[in-house]
Amino acid sequence: MLRFIIERLLTMIPILIVISIISFAIIQLPPGDYLTTYIIQLEASGDSVSQSEIEGLKQRYGLGQPMHVQYFKWISGVVVGDFGYSFEWNQPVNTLIWERLGLTLVVSISSLLLTWIVAFPIGVYSAVRQHSPGDYIATFVGFLGLSIPNFMLALILMYGGYRLFGMSIGGLFSPEFVDASWSWAKFVNMLSHLWIPMVVVGTAGTAGMIRIMRNNLLDELGKQYVVTARAKGLSTVKLIFKYPLRLALIPFVSTVGWLLPQLISGSAVVSVVLNLPTAGPLLLRALLGQDMYLAGSFTFLLATLTVIGTFISDLLLAAVDPRITYD
């Protein structure tokens, strides 16, 4: 098992390197860069203090030098936790991203939990009672959930919230808490706002998971070992829980790997609509404004989270399926 973990960790390194290169390349794609524009602005106003500051920045990040030099300057900063400087915000990237990244994780992981809690029993029910009215309803609602774009759902909830309660349901905090430092009251306040993004982000995933769970379990229910277990005299409930469900969990667990990036993705769009203080809106703004260190670092960190998610799902997979680590 330990060997498996180490091997798996080692394969992550080249992937992370390539990801960092791609992240950097992507943010370099748009023509021109923010700093040039910034310098022109400053020169027009004749601000000499900033002028020297800019020189320092140019030096530090290798601006104006070849691409690979810029990349190495950036990545060597990233390794020690310096993600560069946001020119638009005039702040180090570090001060901007961590709280937002944390909130992105809060939204994504709570949606993931909601997805599981809802999808698991419905999927099992749908498979065990195949072709029952309940199964048909679950299937239909599942398809519907997959077909509604995340942001549409957010719009509908916003519209409904306004019409029914006359309130705006955006944001993660009430106005008085937005700029407050973290406290128990702020945390509770967040929880009361969290359910809307959870529902919105989790819907598509839940619908997908119900189908996966149902199909997996149906596959497993038809297998020979189920008949063997029945022939031993096990009761239906005990049997389903011990055998097919356990096996159906294997692909289910392996979906964590792609579900997490999907949820992070989903939350990016939803956050823009619901005006959540997560990574999505800031990233979008940074991309549009060509605030390259902010955008690049965000893209890189989100991809890293995904790689970690895949790693965790591989570990879970190895835990539920003894065939993985055995060779």
Partner: peptide, 22 residues
């Protein structure tokens, strides 16, 4: 396989966002 793995590790929408912004 590796190429596919790398592409799949990017969260789709941020990646789309980055590419489209370009």
């Amino acid at each position: 396989q590796r190429i596919m793995e790398i592409i799949r590790s990017f969260p789709q929408i941020p990646l789309w966002m980055a590419l489209s912004a370009a």
